[in-house]
């Protein structure tokens, strides 16, 4: 209860600060304020997909069904956040490059990621048997995820990137205005908090479902 209220207040402050407190980034203008939402959304998507992968491997090792619930649930959360990151990215792309979509390497890789998890959900809906669904979809998730590093290597060789992390992130160091950085880090923390709150809620639902099934 405390965490829920705390997160609500925290995120409200982040939203206000992102519009009023932080200055616009040099060269990008007011539209740069989207990084306080776009980057944390993408980060949470990656985090959820990672947790999903770890649970898929755990499921194959132990074949206890709760890991599979976590795998599929985290894949769903990851997909929602990845979709939001894609949309916010496209809005930014339209504002700065003049087009919503241009197969930038970042756009291509997130598109492939969404395709992978689209296929993952298609596979899950095609299998009825609970245990088989869990096992086969875990195997598929692992196989599909292994190809992602290839994309990271291949796609930049074909398309040049216009993604602005070279502007914010020269020579691997975060070069931001101090106030921008404060809001950015708080936003990252807030979104991560939201993810863990959702994760915790879902775990409680999974446990309750297990208890109800045990009683019947």
């Amino acid at each position: 209860m405390f965490w829920k209220v705390f997160l609500g207040i925290w995120m409200s402050l982040v939203i206000i600060a992102s519009f009023l407190y932080a200055p616009p980034a040099l060269g990008l203008g007011e539209v740069s304020r989207i990084i306080y939402y776009h980057v944390p959304l993408a980060w949470v998507a990656v985090l959820a997909y990672m947790v999903s992968m770890i649970n898929a491997i755990k499921y194959l090792r132990t074949s206890s069904i709760e890991y599979d619930y976590r795998t599929s649930f985290n894949a769903e959360v990851g997909t929602i956040f990845a979709l939001l990151a894609t949309v916010t990215g496209a809005i930014f792309a339209n504002a700065t490059w003049g087009t919503y979509w241009n197969w930038d390497p970042r756009q291509t890789s997130i598109f492939v990621l969404l395709l992978i998890y689209g296929s993952y959900f298609a596979l899950r809906s095609a299998i009825d048997d609970r245990e088989q669904k869990a096992r086969l979809s875990s195997v598929y998730a692992i196989i599909a995820f292994i190809t992602v590093p290839f994309l990271v290597f291949i796609i930049p060789r074909i398309y040049a990137s216009l993604h602005p992390d070279p502007i914010v992130n020269i020579e691997g160091r975060l070069q931001m205005d101090a106030r921008m950085l404060q809001v950015f880090i708080s936003s990252l923390a807030g979104f991560t908090g939201i993810y863990f709150w959702i994760y915790n809620l879902q775990n409680r639902i999974i446990n309750l479902k297990g208890k109800i099934k045990g009683r019947l």
């Binding site: 492939v112 992978i116 596979l123 599909a144 190809t147």
Partner: peptide
Amino acid sequence: NLLPVLAFPVLLPLLIT
């Protein structure tokens, strides 16, 4: 029609290369 759906994202790096 499941195989092409499953295979496309996995094979994408191979196809591009």
